[in-house]
Design a protein around this nucleic acid. Structure first.
Length: 905
RNA sequence: GCCGGGAUGGCGGAAUUGGUAGACGCGCCGGACUCAAAAUCCGGUGCUGGAGACAGUGUGAGGGUUCGAGUCCCUCUCCCGGCACCA
């Protein structure tokens, strides 16, 4: 046995053992429950980062823990291998993306292996391989047949840096999710997947996911965005209606044109205010706006302006509300009044009908607009009974009754009162609807509209269909052939996969597939004439929408998934970053439901439990440069000075001693130079230390603050574990005596008590306290080696074997080695998970806390089975209680057996 | 604005779900070993007062329930995350 702890050789030996025994091959095992543990697969960017290490360690702890508890475990790994970084790297280094990707995979795989993860590598997959993406294409064709996939030309989000279209989900604050570039709008044809057809189910089934974090479910629910309202129409004069142009483009993934040209459809959630409509506002892209633009120069100019100004989604929210009168009038469906139509820059073409009814008295935006353009304002609801209207000043009341002058102000509080309380308002000035509350008014109004065939209640969704066409090379080809005579023709199944040429070297000027004649040219499957292939590739989120099901199946070449999938799926525990709360997780849920409806799988939801791990943070140091820029310093390039309390006060650069500002902590990032390379960590301390620190520093869902001293502390602990094993290895355990000396009984009790708590914490997935339980056990165990009492070796061996097993999911290598060295068994993986023993927990005397009026005043030891009356007497006799009583009597005594006695005086 | 989650020593974080607040670790202080340093080991460490036993005080702020509140209820402040001209 090694004298000192040398992780390198220990870890290599353990990993070799696992490889030889094929320890992590997932198999159906009769009589065992299954456990499918999955971490989000990485993009092969080059090397692992700390986020990966944290993610996969969490997964590995769960997988190993379940394995030892008798589960049949599947923990696979693969590569999300299509995507833009490969193309960018290709442009920079003049290598084909395929080569770059394969090299990265090879390196990162070796890194993962060196961390000792219990992965079944026989199920490894990479999404850029034809045997995988063939099934993307195959399912896409099925969706095409079912009308779930379809083609349309629309205004889309365009990322000018990546030169591709982005789906709505992939635009964050008006910027591309990957590049951070400001997104532009472009009108481009592309393929869409009808995720909106599944909106209702995607929302409802969130309730079937009790194992998901609440916030992820809320984010998805918000994104799907269900709202209840009324869709209704204003009549457009016949001469206008018949000459309306078809909508060009429309909004992003919008719902297209109104069905009847003589009707102007709008959607509202506040139908109770319909009698207060004083104008209608339409989006600049709305057919009515385009029609008006043909006849009115001012409208034309405004429409043109909107096209160019509203490029950035981020600015939309803060933009000044502007508009222009079209001069057109439409007829109110209930009052028959003529209502002016305005074009408003605040109306979104992509949501609802691209047109809204405007009720300035009860909507803040409409109010601002009406005030600006001096449009009439008509009050039609009142906060119920006396508390509403009368609360406002005379000046404020005027607002609802007449035209507004510029001098009038309207306070924000006022809006709160009126707009925020739709449940507590009643209709006024609304004819037959007067006195009805919100619900009654909506029902009555919807019924009246329906009777005239001019409207009905409608559920509206925020979710849009998923645009999957990407104008990029390194992705899964969309299996379509364009024929001059037949149009867009699906590639027949027997011609799948449409293979992506792997030897292209992109030069940065568009999609290199356009120059690949051998890829482009083909024959039309319908008529046999020469035709061209589609060069767009699929969004890479398609690739990751079903990989978990492929892992779980037998990798058949003639089927997307097979029978085995039903055995392993759904994933019992999915682990990944919160950044995928909407994108990947929503797409995967949708894809699963499509596969289910096609009869491919039987489950409704792919991920039964979800753990979103926190990010890894580190200190940030920077200083302003002379030129006004910011220069960052890596944490190991600065020397930190602290005050008496340990707070960082100043920092100096190592190289020249100049002052550097401490910016606090933030996520590890390349630009801020505060990343820590896992490889360096593994080389210096070993994988077990890295794993232990990751688990110990913070609970999995929380952010983890990097601390070199913490890593050293973890390493110190493992060295102590090794040293203890060393000291114990020569000692025979001997039999456990029936009756241990008190000090040893206490140690043994502490071990089992700690184990009990640790097992509870594992169930909560709170691994930081499991790691600390290991430390506690060692602290207790170290006492046994100084104790010569009868049975001290027995207690030490029993305790150490518990400690090793408890720690093995976190530090599999050192525990593997010690388990063998001490002769506890051949393989710790096959050892039974430790459970606390009742006889170890038992004690003759218990310590009870004594409180007076809830304040701690002392403690006493009492026989474990002492009854309440005895305990009460003992407490009252206690000197601390006597002192507090000062001769008086206790009012009441509360006895909590096994815990405390509270004397009330 | 709406939704979700937080706030505990110098720091990361515990608290058996209403029962000894601060486990475990880091840092710091003291000691042992050493010519010395590192490493290692031992002891101490919420704050205030006291040499000390001990006393007071203490989980963002204020109130409430309770024998007893970090934990439950009400009001408020601040922080983090998501969504947002969605009609």
């Amino acid at each position: 046995m090694q004298q000192d702890y040398q992780p390198k050789s220990i870890e290599a030996a353990a990993q070799q053992h696992w490889e030889q025994t094929q320890a992590f091959r997932a198999r159906k095992e009769a009589g065992k429950p299954k456990y499918y543990c999955l971490s989000m697969f990485p993009y092969p960017s080059g090397k692992l980062h700390m986020g990966h290490v944290r993610n996969y360690t969490i997964g590995d702890v769960l997988a190993r823990w379940h394995k030892m508890r008798g589960y049949s475990v599947l923990q696979p790994m693969g590569w999300d291998a299509f995507g833009l970084p490969a193309e960018n790297a290709a442009i920079q280094n003049q290598v084909p993306p395929a080569k770059w990707t394969d090299d990265n995979i090879a390196y990162m795989k070796q890194q993962l292996k060196s961390l000792g993860f219990a992965i079944d590598w026989s199920r490894e997959l990479a999404t850029c391989k034809p045997d995988y993406y063939k099934w993307n294409q195959w399912l896409f064709l099925r969706m095409l047949e079912k009308g779930i996939a379809y083609k349309k030309t629309q205004v889309v989000n365009w990322d000018p840096v990546d030169q591709t279209v982005l789906a709505n989900e992939q635009v964050i604050d008006g910027r591309g999710w990957r590049t951070g570039a400001l997104v532009e709008k472009r009108e481009i044809p592309g393929y869409y997947l009808g995720i909106t057809q599944y909106a209702e189910e995607l929302l409802a089934d969130l309730d079937k996911l009790p194992g998901w974090p609440e916030r992820v479910k809320t984010m998805q629910a918000n994104w799907i965005g269900k709202s209840h309202g009324v869709r209704f129409a204003f009549k457009i004069p016949d001469e206008v209606g018949t000459s309306l142009p078809s909508p060009s483009g429309g909004g992003i993934e919008g719902e297209g044109a109104p069905s009847n040209k003589n009707l102007l459809w709008v959607y509202t959630t506040r139908a109770d205010t319909i009698m207060g409509v004083t104008f209608v506002a339409v989006a600049a892209e709305h057919p009515l706006a385009l029609y008006a633009a043909q006849h009115n120069k001012a409208v034309a100019a405004f429409v043109e302006k909107c096209k160019h100004v509203s490029v950035m989604e981020a600015d939309m929210a803060t933009m000044e509300k502007e508009g222009v009168d079209t001069g057109l009038k439409v007829t109110h469906p209930l009052t028959g009044e003529q209502v002016p139509v305005w074009v408003g820059n605040y109306v979104l073409m992509g949501y609802g009908e691209g047109a809204v009814m405007a009720v300035p008295a009860h909507d803040e935006r409409d109010f601002g607009f009406a005030k600006k353009y001096k449009l009439p304002i008509k009050q039609v609801i009142e906060r119920s009974a006396q508390i509403g209207y009368n609360k406002f000043s005379d000046e404020e009341k005027q607002i609802f009754d007449k035209f507004l002058g510029d001098d009038l102000t309207f306070t924000a509080d006022c809006w709160q009162e009126w707009y925020g309380n739709k449940e507590r308002v009643v209709c006024v000035n609304s004819g037959k609807y007067d006195g009805l509350n919100y619900e009654q008014a909506v029902d009555a109004i919807a019924a009246d509209l329906a009777a005239k065939n001019l409207g009905e209640k409608k559920v509206q969704w925020r979710l849009r269909d998923w645009g999957v066409s990407r104008q990029r090379y390194w992705g899964c080809p969309i299996p379509i052939i364009h024929c001059d005579s037949c149009g867009s023709v699906p590639v027949p199944d027997d011609q799948l996969p449409v293979k992506l040429p792997e030897d292209c070297v992109p030069d940065g000027s568009g999609n290199p597939l356009h120059k690949r004649e051998d890829f482009l040219n083909c024959t039309c499957p319908k008529c046999g004439k020469p035709a061209k292939r589609e060069t767009d590739t699929m969004d890479t989120f398609v690739d990751s929408s079903w990989y978990y099901a492929r892992y779980a199946s037998g990798f058949k070449s003639d089927a997307m998934v097979d029978e085995e999938t039903s055995y392993w799926m759904p994933v019992d525990q999915y682990i990944g970053g919160i950044e995928h709360a909407i994108l990947h997780l929503l797409y995967s849920r949708f894809w699963t439901k499509v596969m289910r409806n096609l009869g491919l799988v039987k489950y409704d939801e792919p991920f039964a439990n979800l753990l979103t791990q926190g990010m890894v943070l580190n200190h940030i140091f920077s200083r302003h440069t002379d030129k006004g820029g910011i220069q960052y310093f890596a944490p190991d390039e600065v020397i930190v000075e602290r005050d008496d309390t340990g707070r960082i006060t100043t920092a100096r650069a190592v190289n020249d001693g100049s002052t550097v500002e401490y910016q606090g902590i933030g996520t590890m990032s390349k630009s801020k130079l505060n990343g820590v390379d896992p490889q360096a960590l593994i080389e210096q301390y070993g994988a077990d230390t890295a794993r232990f620190f990751m688990m110990f520093a913070s609970p999995p869902e929380q952010t983890l603050e990097w601390a070199d001293s913490g890593v050293e502390g973890s390493h110190r602990f493992l060295k102590r574990v090794w040293a203890f094993g060393n000291a114990l290895s020569g000692k025979a355990a001997g039999a456990m005596p029936g009756k241990l000396p008190a000090t040893l009984a206490d140690v043994r009790r502490e071990i089992h008590l700690t184990l009990k708590q640790a097992n509870y914490d594992l169930g909560k997935q709170q691994f930081n306290t499991v790691a600390s339980a290991g430390m506690k056990m060692l602290n207790a165990l170290e006492k046994t080696l100084k104790d010569e009492g009868e049975g001290h070796a027995a207690v030490a061996h029993e305790g150490f074997s518990i400690l090793l097993r408890l720690l093995s999911p976190i530090c599999p290598h050192i525990t593997h080695a010690l388990w063998r060295e001490l002769g506890y068994g051949e393989d710790i993986l096959t050892a039974a998970w430790p459970e606390p023993l009742a006889d170890a927990l038992e004690q003759d005397e218990v310590e009870l806390v004594i409180q007076v009026n809830g304040k701690l005043r002392g403690s006493l030891r009492a026989p474990k089975d002492a009854d309440k009356a005895t305990l009460e007497q003992m407490a009252l006799a206690h000197e601390a209680v006597q002192k507090q009583l000062a001769g008086g009597a206790a009012k009441k005594v509360v006895v909590v057996p096994g815990r405390l006695i509270n004397v009330v005086i």
